[in-house]
Computed example of a mutant assay.
Amino acid sequence: MSAPARGDAFAVEQLSPDFGFYLRTTDLLAEARSADQHIEIVQTPLFGRAMRIDGCFMTSEQDEFFYHEPMVHLPAITHGDVRQALIVGGGDGGAAHNLLRYPRLERVVLAELDREVIDMARQWLPAVHRGAFDDPRLELRLGDGRAYIESCEAQFDQIVLDLTDPFGPAVALYTRDFYRLCQRALKPGGVLSLHVQSPIHRGDMMARIVASLRSVFGVVRPYLQYVPLYGTLWGMAMASDRADPLTVSATEVDARLAARGLNGLKLYSGATHHAMLSLPPFVKNLLSAPAAPIDDGDDLDESSLALPAGALCLVEG
Rank of each mutant, 00 (worst) to 15 (best):
L74G: 08
A76K: 14
A76S: 14
I77K: 09
I77E: 03
T78Q: 03
H79Y: 06
G80L: 02
D81S: 13
D81R: 14
V82S: 03
A85K: 02
A85R: 02
L86G: 06
I87V: 15
G90A: 13
D92A: 11
G94R: 06
A96G: 02
H97A: 03
N98A: 11
L99I: 08
L100K: 08
L100I: 05
R101S: 09
R104E: 15
R104C: 15
R107Y: 01
V108Y: 01
L110P: 13
A111Y: 02
A111W: 04
A111D: 00
E112Q: 12
E112L: 12
L113E: 12
D114V: 08
D114L: 08
R115I: 13
V117Q: 06
D119W: 05
D119K: 05
D119S: 08
M120N: 04
M120I: 10
W124N: 14
W124K: 02
W124P: 13
W124F: 15
W124D: 14
L125I: 05
L125C: 07
P126R: 06
P126W: 08
V128P: 01
V128D: 03
H129A: 10
R130E: 14
F133D: 15
D134R: 07
P136D: 05
P136E: 01
P136C: 01
R137D: 07
L138V: 10
E139V: 13
L142V: 01
L142T: 02
G143W: 07
G143L: 08
D144R: 02
A147T: 01
A147M: 01
Y148Q: 07
I149M: 05
E150R: 14
S151T: 06
C152I: 00
C152A: 03
C152S: 12
C152N: 03
E153Y: 10
A154H: 05
A154K: 06
Q155T: 13
Q155G: 06
F156E: 02
F156S: 09
D157M: 08
V160R: 05
V160A: 10
L161T: 03
D162F: 12
T164I: 13
T164R: 11
D165Y: 10
D165P: 14
D165F: 12
P166Y: 07
P166D: 03
F167L: 05
F167H: 15
A170F: 10
V171K: 10
V171G: 15
T175D: 00
R176D: 14
D177S: 09
D177Y: 06
F178E: 00
F178Y: 09
R180M: 15
R180Y: 11
Q183H: 04
Q183K: 14
A185E: 15
A185V: 06
